[in-house]
Design a protein around this nucleic acid. Structure first.
Length: 491
RNA sequence: CGGGGUGUAGCGCAGCCCGGUUAGCGCAUCUGGUUUGGGACCAGAGGGUCGCAGGUUCGAAUCCUGCCACCCCGACCA
């Protein structure tokens, strides 16, 4: 059918790239490493935003906005934090251009040099905590539960549409608390919100766990993550929530008076989820015919395609289609009636399969005569004929079923590609074929983790929250271990 | 930053080795007509600083020099 895509089995990376372009989600821009998110791709992001925003507000958070620029001096206040981001910063040094004296275009005006350089935010902890310093004096000012929807810049050496771009869109939550316990509770709450969102809206099963010290966010005491498995057996970090302890409060001198009148530093968390999620969505569900979108995040949930030979037929089909569209919309479903005359039905079928529209309804003269609709579902590509009077409930149920089915399929895939491994040989062998998640014992040291990474490119994705206590031996060093970690090669 | 590759119409490419009519093909676009239940067909039309700057030559997309950009493979990362 869709011979326009590279085969997923032949070249997974190329398939992914083709799909992003052909489905009209995004394209490379004139700026190195930065993408243009096209309307269809952005519509998915808007759906993600709308749902997450609702969930953040339901858990007591509010939105605010902080500057894109961060003074260099702010950045260096938390030692680990700078170290982590220093190598991928874009820096503003001047504020004016002028005409070149030799008449050759425009140049940076050397007299317009900034006193202090500005960093384009790679993340906003520093600029936000600088503000929190002024906002917090007493325990009565706490907690602060703020989220920001923003763009950030990380000057990555190699980029890939959605998965890693030099500029990306995300949300970052930054909260301030009076006690350690409350901050930890917040960190956990938000990783649960992310997992809930991933599983119930993206139809993406995830594993929640702790990051190893090596993989932790720069400046965090503890990082929790949700990890998902892609169809090529590689892992993708889909969201992170950090317990920052008092690190940033100390760096920015944010103290408060508690109920007993004692002065203490504020406890912090931060948590983020980015446009990378769209990459996860694509890689987790799609096939050789194109995207497969979960109904709850699909910009178009149902497309209606007319099949006709002449204007007379089109008139009667159009009347039925418009009524059907209105009825479905009244049930809260987003519907597109594609009555463009410049493409044949076959072309449209292929087009909407490529774009992952969950349900397709075809209406032709036969259907008008028999009072029926042809219903096709994107996830299985099955077609059936449904009586017009049953179509509303049928579509509603079908959308739910597709949502559940693609989740089940992804979960099944993850189960089949998660392995408990106890020997080094097996570990190496499984990583190469078939790949996937590997649960193995690890001695808990950074040295071992790095050796494993060097030799196999596999990293510890997380130590799953639900990983049970059990005695074992580290797969690499043979030293005793009490718990299994989750390993994989990752994006 | 190291290794490899590519820049020719909106997109994908051929031409370059071996210099020589008006730079070609497919897709897309526009016009007209026939079509329409799984990516239609015919006829016609428009669209080019051949990445940039020099050089060699009677003549350069083609040869030489320099530069720039992008892509792929490694080291960094959500």
């Amino acid at each position: 059918m869709a011979k326009f895509l590279t085969n997923r089995e032949e070249n997974y990376a190329q398939w992914y790239n083709d799909l992003v372009i052909k489905a009209d989600l995004a394209e490379n821009s004139a700026v190195r490493g930065c993408m243009v998110i096209k309307p269809y791709g952005y519509a998915i992001w808007e759906k993600i935003q709308a749902q997450l925003d609702k969930m953040f507000k339901a858990t007591g958070h509010v939105n605010a906005y902080f500057p894109l620029f961060i003074p260099k001096s702010f950045f260096s206040k938390e030692a680990k934090h700078v170290e982590g981001f220093a190598k991928e910063c874009a820096i503003v040094t001047h504020y004016r251009l002028k005409n070149d004296e030799n008449g050759k275009g425009i140049i940076v005006d050397p007299t317009a040099k900034l006193e202090e350089e500005l960093i384009i935010r790679p993340t906003s902890e520093t600029i936000i905590w600088n503000s929190y310093k002024n906002w917090i004096q007493s325990y009565r000012d706490l907690p602060i539960l703020i989220n920001q929807w923003a763009n950030v810049v990380r000057w990555e050496m190699r980029t890939r549409l959605f998965l890693r771009t030099a500029e990306f869109l995300w949300q970052e939550g930054h909260t301030a608390h009076a006690t350690r316990e409350e901050a930890i509770e917040e960190t956990q709450k938000m990783i649960n919100v992310y997992a809930d969102f991933a599983e119930n809206f993206m139809a993406l099963p995830v594993i929640k766990g702790y990051k190893s010290e090596n993989e932790r966010f720069a400046g965090a005491i503890d990082t929790y993550a949700i990890e998902a498995l892609m169809q090529d057996g590689k892992a993708l970090q889909a969201g992170t929530s950090h317990f920052l302890g008092q690190n940033f409060a100390k760096a920015f001198d944010v103290q408060f008076t508690d109920k007993t009148g004692k002065l203490d530093y504020v406890w912090a968390t931060s948590w983020g989820l980015s446009t990378r999620m769209i990459g996860a969505l694509i890689m987790a569900h799609s096939d050789n015919n194109g995207l497969v979108l979960p109904p709850r995040l699909a910009p178009i949930q149902v497309v209606i395609i007319p099949i006709y030979k002449n204007a007379g037929q089109m008139d009667s089909i159009s009347a039925v289609a418009k009524k059907l569209k209105a009825d479905l919309e009244a049930k809260g479903i987003s519907v597109k009636f594609d009555d463009r005359d410049n493409n044949k039905p076959g072309w449209k079928f292929a087009e909407y399969e490529l774009k992952g529209v969950p349900v397709r309804l075809a209406l032709g003269p036969r259907d008008i005569e028999n009072n029926t609709v042809e219903v096709a579902r994107r996830d299985t590509l099955e077609k059936e004929i449904v009586q017009m009077d049953k179509i509303l409930t049928h579509v509603l149920l079908l959308l739910e079923e597709i949502q559940n089915n693609i989740y089940k399929k992804a979960l099944e895939f993850r189960k089949e590609n998660t392995f408990k491994v106890d020997t080094w040989d097996e570990f190496v062998r499984i990583l190469d074929n078939p790949g996937g998640f590997i649960l193995a014992h690890w001695d808990g040291t950074i040295e071992t983790e790095e050796k494993i990474k060097e030799e196999t490119k596999a990293t510890i994705r997380c130590i799953p929250f639900d990983s049970p206590d059990e005695d074992g031996k580290c797969i690499y060093s043979g030293k005793p271990s009490k718990r299994r970690a989750l390993f994989a090669r990752s994006y």
